[in-house]
């Protein structure tokens, strides 16, 4: 692959901690290879800052192969940057050219408070799963895995919803900071499988309740979540969540009433 190097200007959100006031700081980085990933470019910046005896920029990252969901940069106004179906760690510098200025912010949502610089607290997502994002089956004594055939199309749809990596880009991209795409992906994953059937209604209601408790905004069908989702989770899941929720409420008995 042909490659080249570039010099860039970065405007990065700095914030000492949750209580401190944050602001943008400007950095120049030089000789960035087009073959680097976006986070490797940040590694270069941080090595430079350590050499200058300054504090490096804090950012969440772990697997660096687009699957763990840790990385979370809001790049030039877009969650995970410009590439389609992509996480920050998989964005590569061949996207940029010499002299570019890149603005990098953390996810912005009241339900994702900033911990430091570009790192936010996404534990609200764990609490939503705790509310019902599971099938209540204890370890041991499950029936044979092939005892219940599952229509391939449904299994595939369930899998597609289950590929959500819980990164929170959907919330960051939404002007209302709604978490509907995240919640609907989990509700769909489990509702489409026969194993998820018994708790189907209660699950939808409980997860939506917790989502509201966490302070996420309402869904107004803008579609930014789907457009920015690194795994391409479809808006159809939100439609399914709405159907699940309404039918649960109509049935009444699911909420224990």
């Amino acid at each position: 692959m042909e490659h080249n190097t570039m010099n860039l200007t970065l405007k990065v959100w700095r914030q000492k901690n949750n209580k401190a006031k944050g602001g943008f700081e400007t950095f120049n980085v030089k000789n960035i290879s087009s073959e680097m990933s976006f986070l490797e470019m940040f590694d270069v910046l941080n090595e430079q800052l350590v050499a200058e005896n300054k504090e490096p920029v804090a950012f969440d990252h772990d697997c660096r192969e687009g699957i763990c969901g840790a990385c979370s940069m809001y790049i030039n106004g877009r969650a995970h940057g410009p590439w389609h179906h992509n996480t920050t760690c998989q964005l590569h510098m061949r996207e940029y050219k010499d002299g570019d200025t890149i603005v990098v912010e953390p996810w912005r949502a009241d339900s994702f408070p900033v911990i430091k610089d570009l790192v936010v607290d996404r534990s609200a997502f764990d609490r939503i799963i705790q509310a019902g994002g599971y099938i209540s089956v204890n370890t041991g004594n499950a029936v044979d895995a092939n005892s219940l055939p599952i229509d391939k199309q449904k299994a595939d749809e369930s899998f597609a919803a289950a590929t959500c990596i819980g990164c929170g880009a959907c919330v960051a991209a939404c002007p209302n900071t709604s978490a509907m795409l995240f919640v609907s992906a989990k509700v769909s994953h489990l509702a489409l499988l026969p194993q998820g059937e018994p708790e189907r209604q209660l699950r939808a209601v409980k997860m939506v309740e917790q989502m509201d408790t966490e302070g996420f905004g309402s869904c107004t069908n803008i579609g930014a979540c789907e457009a920015e989702c690194p795994k391409g989770i479809s808006l159809e899941n939100i439609a399914r969540l709405n159907r699940e929720y309404i039918s649960a409420i109509m049935d009444g008995d699911s909420t224990g009433a």
């Binding site: 089956v137 499950a142 029936v143 044979d144 229509d151 299994a155 899998f159 499988l193």
Partner: peptide
């Protein structure tokens, strides 16, 4: 038993057209 347990939890393994794993 691992496969049985995971399927019971809703792990969406790849399936054939007949619906089996």
């Amino acid at each position: 038993s691992i496969i049985d347990q995971c399927v019971a939890q809703g792990v969406p393994f790849a399936r054939e057209y007949g619906g089996l794993l």
